[in-house]
Simulated assay, not measured.
Amino acid sequence: MSATEQHRRPVGQVKEVTSLANPLVKDIKALALKKFRDEQHAFMAEGLKLVIDALDLGWSIKTLVFAKSAHGNAAVEKIAARTVAAGALVLEVSEKVLSAITRRDNPQMVVGVFTQKYLPLKDIRPAGDDVWVALDRVRDPGNLGTVMRTIDAVGAKGLILVGDTTDPFSLETVRATMGSVFAVPIARATAEQFLAWRKSFPGLVAGTHLKGAVDYRSVDYGGRPVLLLMGNEQQGLPDELAAACDKLLRIPQAGRADSLNLAVATAVMLYEVRRTALKLPTEAGQ
């Protein structure tokens, strides 16, 4: 890099903030509301490991917030230096400010504010043994975050959010992902957009349904891309999405409950797909 290029490179700032009335703090606190997340095209993630993982995966950081008590921590100072080098803002704050930002009494010592990222639906071109998950109108941020974490764990390719869903970048969802929000590509679409895209899907589209006639364990998912379509927590798959499935599957239940939690059902399905399609190595004895 030439001296001129170094001179033109954006350089961030480090500021010390102790007041809750500071405009920078107010802007970050506002990210608790979807309206402001959408306006700023940003979201919060808590924890040093999450921030490091996000930067390593190429996510764009806008602001790094860390507690005064972390001053002198080598790992925190290193990530602060990376943030400044990226041209972003670093705030050293009191624990009172950090608690207000995270809405926690015992907050993590580091919070990152990142630019949201969505994958255009048209750019998803499944091939080979690729596995994707589509969720219809998922409502619960805990469910959404847990599904994203499971997608990450099994090595599936990503997630498509269909219809009016809960925000994948809400603080509750991001917490539930345990960092997988940075590793799982997310696309979003209306039901109409999704159905139009589905027509060109080159593999198996499988949905779980209470009226499903096929046991989920009886299907060979290997040798082709798989799209797993899961319905809303309360209503399941609507007729138009159910009709778009090649197979409607059921997860047998022996007890009184007539259905599983969405995140649990998705995990059960993904690990069965993993067994036959992803063919990931298993540890000895498992």
Rank of each mutant, 00 (worst) to 15 (best):
A45N: 03
L33H: 13
E5P: 02
S170Q: 05
I160H: 10
I28D: 00
A213F: 08
G285I: 04
M269H: 07
S218Y: 01
L161P: 05
Q108I: 05
K157F: 04
R217K: 11
A45G: 02
V113G: 03
V76H: 07
M148N: 06
L237G: 11
A74I: 09
V219F: 01
S99T: 11
L260R: 06
P281D: 01
R82Y: 07
H71P: 09
S19W: 09
S180E: 08
E16A: 14
L24C: 09
K26S: 09
L20R: 05
L89E: 15
P185V: 06
A189H: 08
V51P: 00
R9I: 11
F66Q: 07
V113S: 03
D130N: 08
R82S: 06
A80M: 05
V147C: 15
E283T: 12
A257K: 11
Q193V: 08
V162H: 03
W132T: 02
D239Y: 07
L229R: 00
I151N: 02
V14R: 15
L195M: 10
R9V: 10
S170G: 12
R104M: 11
T173L: 06
N232Q: 13
A156P: 03
F114E: 01
E233S: 09
V181L: 15
K78T: 13
V205A: 13
L228T: 00
K29W: 10
I251V: 12
K29R: 15
A54I: 05
P141I: 01
A85C: 08
L50I: 10
F36N: 14
L262G: 10
P202R: 04
D220Q: 14
V181P: 01
G207E: 09
L89M: 15
L33M: 12
